[in-house]
């Protein structure tokens, strides 16, 4: 459905996006995961024809979006990261405004607005001014605007930033429902690992303008298939204990967060006993030791050496 080839964007000396390749098939939810400043929003802006790339091409249904943006724009809904709404208009008036911008038929528009309000759960609040809405309600309306013209492809740029967990769950469920019931194709960017894990069929991990990993959730986690993760909780993390762990030939990676030490160790190594021994040796009081399956967070850490929200 959509194919991105060697996309680059350079601002003077800064390479915001450097050679991104990706594709999206009809009916997929694809995640674009990366920390703040990774280049996700710039990539989405280029893909949606909002800004021209310095190099590369974006093809929608085999036609270049750079040369012919209109075809994509008719089928595309974009949920921007910021709340792009008129705060002094009501929810319904905002939808009416964007409906007119999309040149929708007047009769059709009324029914469509009712439908969208239903989807985003704002029927009761449709005549309230947007400025009186909570952050979550604004975010939902922000999504609603993008759904008004029945797009077959939707780009969502961090649509859950800064909202409460309840609203967040509502949005995530709405995205799932849209994909399931309307076969909507969705590109979802986020720096929340759990959102992408919950929603997406395939994932692209982006860092510093590059795609550093891609594939299905399992494909990506298999990057760490040869390893196992140990999460050790201690009463006090002693430097002596972590130094011994670091020096151990089986430990591939070690991170310390407050009282928790996380280790990556080859799968074939039986390491549980070693941890107990080293703790005893250094008089470290262990609270718990867990063997975990690798998460996307672990993959990101493994690939970049940094946590996703650093």
């Amino acid at each position: 459905m959509l194919e991105v080839t060697d996309l680059k964007k350079q601002y003077k000396q800064t390479k915001a996006v450097d050679g991104v390749n990706l594709f999206i098939e009809q009916g997929e939810i694809v995640g674009l995961l990366g920390p703040n400043g990774a280049g996700k929003s710039t990539t989405i802006s280029m893909m949606s024809s909002l800004i021209p790339p310095s190099e590369g091409d974006v093809r929608f249904l085999n036609e270049s979006v750079i040369k012919q943006p209109q075809k994509l724009r008719e089928k595309l809904g974009v949920v921007p990261q910021e709340i792009a709404l008129y705060l002094n208009l009501t929810a319904r008036e905002n939808l009416q405004f964007f409906g007119k911008i999309y040149k929708m038929d007047k009769k059709q528009l009324g029914a469509k607005i009712d439908q969208v309000l239903e989807i985003i759960g704002l029927v009761d609040k449709q005549n309230d001014l947007v400025k009186t809405f909570s952050g979550g309600m604004k975010r939902r309306l922000n999504i609603g605007v993008a759904l008004l013209h029945d797009p077959s492809l939707v780009f969502m740029d961090e649509p859950t930033v800064g909202i409460d967990p309840q609203s967040r769950n509502y949005i995530l469920d709405t995205v799932k429902r849209l994909n399931r019931e309307k076969n909507m194709t969705i590109l979802y960017t986020s720096h929340y690992m759990e959102e992408v894990e919950y929603l997406c069929d395939r994932i692209y991990i982006m860092d510093q303008g590059h795609i550093i990993a891609s594939g299905s959730k399992d494909d990506i986690k298999n990057i760490l298939s040869a390893e196992q993760t140990f999460q050790i909780e201690t009463a006090v993390v002693k430097e002596e204990f972590t130094n011994l762990l670091k020096e151990h030939p089986s430990v591939r990676q070690l991170t310390v967060q407050e009282k928790t030490v996380t280790l990556l160790v080859p799968k074939e190594v039986v390491f549980f006993q070693t941890i107990i021994e080293l703790a005893e040796q250094t008089n470290t009081e262990l609270k718990s030791v867990q063997v975990q399956k690798p998460s996307l967070e672990d993959v990101f850490l493994h690939l970049t050496g940094r946590a996703l929200r650093d």
Binding site: L50, R73, F98, I101
Partner: peptide, 13 residues
């Protein structure tokens, strides 16, 4: 500034 302009650019208008 508020991103409404970008939304309009992406519309058929």
């Amino acid at each position: 500034q508020e991103g409404i302009w970008d939304r309009i650019i992406l519309s058929p208008s």
